[in-house]
Amino acid sequence: MPPPLPLITAKGTPRKCGTTYGSVAASAIAANVANYMTRFAAAGIDAQQVHGYGALFRAASHQHAPRVAEMLDGVAEGARANVDEIYALNGRTELIYSAAGECTAIAVLGERSAGGHTLLAQNWDWHPDQRPYALLLDTTDERGRRVVALTEAGMLAKAGLNDAGLGVCVNMLGSTKDRRDGGVPYHVLLRSALESAHLGEALAAVCSVPRGASINLLMGQAYPAGTPGEAIDVELAPDDVGFLHPVDGVITHANHFETALARHDTLKYIGSSSFFRSSRARRLLGTGPVEEEGIRAVLRDHGGFPQAICRHDEPGGADADRTETLFSLVLDLDERRMSIAHGPACRGVEYHHIRLGESA
């Protein structure tokens, strides 16, 4: 069965991976850049300002995440796109979005999973008009590090995993500390985590750099047979970090802060389904061994419909507030496997499997 969205494969140095990706996906990247330029304009950010912010994001990325920055420069080169617009695209969260009612993520350690594997999963909920710009990016760099990630055309990563058995899921957060003026962009942080060989390196990559937007990373890693896997949730605000650890072998997260950083949470002032989705996911997982199908069942849940774990578009509302589950993912870190399906996840969809042990 073919993947549910385009799969782009690239090999070589970060620059080479970027240029290959950019050239293969040039038309989709151009369309997505044009789409976000329209969204920026609607938010009162004109083209000159977009380029100025993009230049700030590029400078911060080159300073703090140079390999990822080289890849993004390559994307612009390969797609023959304006490099500042590519960086603004990767900083679109900083520029126009605060926390929205989107994305529910799950981690299950081997001690709780029925098969003994470390599992991550999430629904990626986003504006339904963004569905045509989604793709899978499969890269193998000159060190042999292989990364497979769900992303949008012109970006380098959202949820994904690498051949070291490290995986990342992501939730948007909103903080009163968020700002537009620089820092390493949200999507560059995600790619930095996925480029890491182990959890400690991933934590250093995301915690040690300046940030402009809040982001939640649910990360896990499987280890060689006989060594239990690990998972940790990292809430990142521009000037602080909070951590959550597994409870009874499980972590769940939605779009609000659950650590002490909650004092700066913008959702407290507007409300959100996030405040029940994370807790509901924990309850639905139950107390016994968790089958992978049980995780998929949670991702199909309609409690709170339409603003449920399985999110459905609400016609008639403000366009900027529309959100739907675009894709549903399960990452088996021991098998180095991504299973991905079109959303909403309730529609009897089949999951396509990509295994990193197979040839790229």
Rank of each mutant, 00 (worst) to 15 (best):
S98A: 10
T287M: 15
E335S: 12
T252H: 05
P238T: 00
L199S: 06
L299Y: 10
A47C: 13
T93E: 06
I251W: 03
N35A: 10
E235Q: 12
Q130I: 04
A76D: 05
L218G: 10
F327I: 06
A318C: 07
T252W: 01
V349N: 14
L299K: 03
A222N: 01
M155H: 15
E85R: 03
T9E: 14
V250T: 10
V234I: 06
G288C: 14
F257G: 00
S214I: 06
V290G: 03
D248E: 14
A260M: 14
A231M: 07
A153R: 08
L189T: 03
L189V: 02
H198I: 05
E358P: 05
A254Y: 01
A65Q: 12
H302S: 09
K158E: 09
H264E: 04
F57T: 01
G226Y: 11
V234M: 11
R191P: 03
Q48M: 11
A318T: 13
A134I: 02
A213D: 01
V75A: 08
T19A: 15
E324D: 15
P2K: 09
F257D: 00
G154M: 08
V330R: 02
L119P: 02
D239K: 03
D125A: 11
P66N: 05
A281L: 08
R191K: 14
P210T: 09
H264N: 09
S359G: 14
S27I: 14
I29F: 11
A204Y: 11
T20S: 13
A254I: 03
R311W: 02
E235P: 01
T252S: 04
F275R: 11
V250L: 07
N162G: 07
L135K: 12
A47R: 09
I340M: 01
D141I: 10
H312A: 02
V241D: 00
G317D: 04
A47L: 12
A222R: 01
P14A: 09
Q130D: 15
T323L: 08
M71E: 13
Y351M: 11
G44R: 13
R92F: 13
Y97E: 13
D84V: 04
D138T: 12
S328T: 12
D321F: 05
R311Q: 05
H64Q: 11
R347A: 14
H127I: 05
P238R: 03
F305N: 06
L89H: 12
R277T: 04
M172I: 07
L120F: 00
A121C: 13
R146V: 14
R112I: 06
